[in-house]
Design a protein around this nucleic acid. Structure first.
Length: 381
DNA sequence: AAGTTCTTATTAC
DNA sequence: CTAACGGTAATAAGAACTT
């Protein structure tokens, strides 16, 4: 039986919330992320509104560069507490668009059982196969968008397709290109529906990096592999139709297991179920210093803090750990990890502290460079 | 030779 | 001097190690 999957993605989420809370920002460039510190800040842009994008600013850009591009922008710190609260309210709204749970042994097999999946603060999937029609799916999407706008005063973009992959890419493509935005405060607020018979045409002209799982590195490797067999313009984007020229065997040779899924994805195939079952496998904390340092006072007081916070979380969540990993990034962005797996799982914060410090000490003894970042992560059970 | 651990690389939000 | 690049988490692959 064919599925119908909906992907909802809030528009420039953090920045849009800030606009909503501060109407005086309307039409002005808003950048949420690290403190630019007059151009010397070391963090990155988390999210920015579309006015800021006109200056060339985008997510994940170093905040120093964003400041360079538009020093007069409104730079705001990440107010995660607020975004979390807003997220919860939105998810509550979304949840109501699914049929109520049917208490039954054959839950998963019932077409009417509620299937949804929250993938981040601002994204979720809904399995709306029960509607049995794309027309009804469109209707539901319109109503959902309207309710979120009315109740939360926020716009979102929705993609609908026969699986999670297509729904996700559809939502991405439904957001208009940033350069075309005006200063009027217009928001993406999009909706794109790709029916099964449209999937092939939809995917073929897209850039391969539009496929989830292909980032810059994998994109490069595929480009190289393709230009070896046929001449290509050096800077022309590689499209999904080009990717389809590689056989499954070739892709697996090039990319291993990833190649296998990419072969399917290029053809719009994705059987991943929409499911809310998700288990956290590790928890960690890391910190970048304002300046690279070798001062043991600074390094160890921060590390102590990190150890305490993770210890706290383990205690609060009743979780056990067995593997401890310490991350150390030196001057020049050179990053290394050291890990230690214990005999058996434990929740003892003394052990965590002892082992973590041992690992960090090893780093300090074997590498004399200044330290940029330290971090700690534990694998949990 | 197989299983476990350690380390790095890549991706995504 | 030329790049600038956070924090959190998952997954994969291969090297290194035990048994």
């Amino acid at each position: 039986m064919e599925r119908i999957v909906l992907h909802i993605d809030m528009d420039y989420f953090f920045a849009q919330i800030e606009e909503r809370e501060n109407p005086q920002f309307k039409g002005k460039p808003v950048v949420v992320g690290a403190d630019p510190k007059g151009g010397k800040g070391r963090g990155v842009v988390s999210t920015c509104n579309y006015t800021a994008r006109k200056y060339g600013i985008h997510s994940a850009m170093p905040i120093s560069k964003a400041y360079e591009l538009c020093p007069e922008a409104i730079f705001l710190p990440v107010n995660m507490q607020l975004y979390q609260k807003v997220s919860e309210k939105i998810m509550e709204i979304i949840k109501k668009y699914l049929p109520r749970s049917i208490p039954s042994e054959s839950e998963g097999l019932l077409r009417g059982s509620p299937k949804w999946e929250i993938t981040s603060l601002d994204e979720a999937y809904l399995d709306i196969s029960f509607l049995n029609s794309y027309k009804k799916a469109e209707n539901l999407a319109e109503k959902l968008k309207k309710e979120i706008l009315e109740k939360e005063k926020l716009t979102c973009t929705v993609g609908i397709g026969p699986n999670k992959l297509i729904a996700k890419i559809a939502a991405e493509k439904a957001k208009p290109r940033s350069e075309l935005r005006s200063t009027t405060g217009a928001k993406p607020n999009g909706l794109l529906i790709i029916k099964p018979n449209q999937v092939k045409k939809f995917l073929e002209p897209l850039d391969i990096e539009d496929l989830p799982g292909i980032g810059p590195k994998t994109g490069m490797r595929i480009a190289q592999s393709l230009s070896l067999r046929s001449r290509h313009y050096a800077n022309a984007p590689i499209r999904i139709r080009d990717l389809k020229k590689l056989s499954k065997k070739e892709l697996v040779e090039l990319l291993g297991r990833v190649g296998e899924t990419l072969y399917e994805r290029a053809r719009g195939i994705d059987e991943e179920p929409v499911t809310s079952e998700e288990i956290i496998k590790s928890i960690g904390k890391e910190h970048t210093f304002e300046k690279d340092t070798r001062d043991p006072e600074i390094i160890f007081s921060k590390f102590d803090e990190i150890i305490k916070e993770i210890g706290q979380e383990l205690f609060l969540t009743n979780l056990y750990f067995r593997t401890i990993t310490v991350i150390c990034r030196f001057t020049g962005f050179e990053t290394h990890t050291k890990s230690k797996t214990l005999e058996k799982t434990t929740r003892d914060s003394e052990i965590l502290e002892k082992e973590a410090k041992k690992l960090l000490l090893k780093f300090l003894l074997e590498n004399p460079k200044l330290i940029r970042l330290i971090g700690l992560r534990v694998k949990i059970f």
